[in-house]
Design a protein around this nucleic acid. Sequence first.
DNA 1: CTGAAAGCGCTAACAA
DNA 2: TTGTTAGCGCTTTCAG
Lengths: 343, 343
Amino acid sequence: MSIKDLAQHLNISIGTVSRALNGRADVNPDTRKRVLAAAKAMGYVANQSGRSLRQGATNVIGFTIETNVETKSQGDTFFMTVFDGVQTVFARHKLDLVVLLCSSDDDPFDHVRRVVSRQFADGLIISATQRQDPRIDYLIERGIPFVTLGRSLSGGEHSWIDMDFEGVAAQSVARLVARGHTRIALANTTRGINLSYVFEDAYRAALADHGIAYDPDIVLRGDITELGGYQLCEKLLALPNRPTAVVLVNESLAIGFYRRLHEAGLTPGRDMAIIGFRQSPQARFLSPALTCYRLSLHDVGVELAQSLLATMPAYKDLYPLGTVQKIWPMELVPGESDPPLRR
Amino acid sequence: MSIKDLAQHLNISIGTVSRALNGRADVNPDTRKRVLAAAKAMGYVANQSGRSLRQGATNVIGFTIETNVETKSQGDTFFMTVFDGVQTVFARHKLDLVVLLCSSDDDPFDHVRRVVSRQFADGLIISATQRQDPRIDYLIERGIPFVTLGRSLSGGEHSWIDMDFEGVAAQSVARLVARGHTRIALANTTRGINLSYVFEDAYRAALADHGIAYDPDIVLRGDITELGGYQLCEKLLALPNRPTAVVLVNESLAIGFYRRLHEAGLTPGRDMAIIGFRQSPQARFLSPALTCYRLSLHDVGVELAQSLLATMPAYKDLYPLGTVQKIWPMELVPGESDPPLRR
DNA sequence: CTGAAAGCGCTAACAA
DNA sequence: TTGTTAGCGCTTTCAG
């Protein structure tokens, strides 16, 4: 079932069929109607490979995520919600969003290189940015339109969107200090991924703002998972001169923290102040309620999509945003997990 | 950068380049070496559209998931782990797994139809099967290789893999009965998706096995989300002649159940026995520990991939499995959430 | 407004 | 062992 069959069936040329289907102006309204009707009746849809080959464009946008790192950490509906936002924009332009999975035993750089060189997609959204990220340099060099979800030191002038790690760190420390805490731990993730640097730097700056000395012993690092939280909490409890509060780089950690505290006969909040990161569905149902920050991931997705289109020649006029480098604001959601310190 | 450029650069014909790259036997070893070296040096990789068009195959396998239904319930760790398993198999055959998202405002049937007619993928894995699922009939009619994650009444002879809802329901009821419970509620999801029927039927059968009358008033239905669990728990607490135990169709519900019970001053387990469904990372860190069931989602992915390949002409000899219809076993993980009933 | 034809990049059949 | 060439399905000139 190709365009040829359809044309034959209608007794017109394939050129006209193509024009009719693609909404060209120079086609007789009646002809167009006939073509559209026949296409529908026969269930004809243009073969993607044929179109792509001819047009030099695939009408596909790839969103790469890593099945190892991100998955286990973000755990919840993080990406799905972002995807949904991205799609609402792309749908308007008949662009298809496909998710390209970089599996646990695949190198992210190789993966992107393969995707690009096969010309699988017209544009790319990549996530889990490293502090130095060769993918970014590569994409710039090859001139592939892309946006990153997350900052990086690499590349300079590309578009990115990132969560407001600085704001969260600063606001969390300020809030805890206001509530009497001075010994505030940080539950961070392993180095490599850029956000760990951003978050820790902001935490240090915030401490300094409040005249609190930085103590590397209470900056802990682990996996961003529920289990990671459990283990970090254990480390924290074992510390001499135990911190009275902790700021988490990710809300998944909170689940493990709560559990470990319970096992130790301690109550989150009362015995250890905790400020989580994002208000996730799981975090919402912790008791006591976790103090955390809200953002619309759907809107992040929308903005990612628009930023990408702004870098694509075929769409940049519709989205004259230039290079987007946006730190996405997050709004405090006060909970019960960080009450004032009892003396 | 096409095969032409590469051939020109090497002063040989494109045919030879193609054969060398594709590992054909009839190529001089030296020539092959030169071609491969040049391809690597120049970063050449065959254009996918060109290949697909010529070969009539895309070497892409699509895995469709719904951003609305599944996402909010399963959270994405569920699928990511499955994907990872699927990929380990496909990688061996240079097949690319891409995830095709059916967004909230898109009809799943239309979505599959679009994917198929554009010839986007050589095979499909579809999930969130409905009790009657037109996608299945359509795929069979069109002769597209596919497997479903989840059963359905539609289609008859296609391959599918599903979780052992019957086993979980039966074992859960038996376990609760053995612990003295006779008034056992079911927290199910809305009708439409097939698993809700399967699970409820098995629950009814299990009750009957133990001589317990079925009471429709204690079969509750809601969204499979943390919030859904919260709301269902509320309904449960408001019931006259309150059940002493509840079996959940999905572990996300447990998060909301725990929270709601706490708010009512009740303790999960002691005041209301709960058996969750899958042992998810979140569920693992509930206190008291949730009684639930374990399965390897990675292995489910592997099996899905193999089952799909078994239906594809080009691979069926390598995977002579025939039609796979497999109920995936789940293993009880006893917790503290369903202690014996106090009299 | 429509038809004819070129050609996107690739592989496979055939010829040499 | 290699070169030549047809043609996959499509869009887009260019003529008419």
